[in-house]
């Protein structure tokens, strides 16, 4: 399940599409009866071979189950975004520290500590970032407006 999740999401992010075959080429080596291509913008293209489906209606049930699983995998929870943010802080701080001529071990330890801290208080940290982004946006807006007023 975990592997499937990463596969479908990764394929969507990297190639912009994810394909579900029934049967899978690896399952019986045969050609598919049903193909669903899911695109990153939410569009779907489905191909059905009606003659082969008539001779083996079980394939439709299997395919519908796969689609049901895909639907669950593609619902990215808010929590996932919080974790992604925490990881970004950890990696970002490490790269930044290392580029500041900080020694590798110190960079690693500080960013790891920061990462652990952010994981622990990720909700608060995320809110902090949202607030900073909001302040920056407001500052840009006001500086543009005041420049136009002059």
């Amino acid at each position: 399940m975990g592997l499937l999740r990463s596969t479908s999401l990764r394929a969507l992010l990297l190639t912009g599409r994810y394909t579900v075959h029934t049967p899978m080429p690896s399952e019986d080596g045969g050609d598919p009866v049903l193909i669903t291509i899911f695109y990153a913008n939410g569009d779907i293209l489905a191909f059905v071979d009606p003659e082969r489906l008539d001779s083996d209606p079980r394939q439709a049930v299997v395919h519908l189950e796969k689609i049901e699983r895909l639907a669950q995998e593609l619902i990215v929870p808010w929590k996932w975004i919080e974790w992604a943010f925490s990881s970004m802080v950890t990696i970002g701080s490490f790269v930044w520290l290392y580029l500041q001529d900080t020694r590798f071990l110190i960079s690693f330890l500080v960013s790891a500590a920061l990462g652990v801290l952010v994981v622990g208080i990720r909700k608060v940290a995320l809110r902090l970032v949202v607030r900073i982004l909001f302040r920056i946006a407001r500052w840009i807006y006001h500086s543009v407006v005041s420049r136009q007023d002059k």
Partner: peptide, 8 residues
């Protein structure tokens, strides 16, 4: 789409 003879 209805299509006969698909390949994977």
């Amino acid at each position: 789409i209805i299509k006969s003879g698909m390949i994977a």
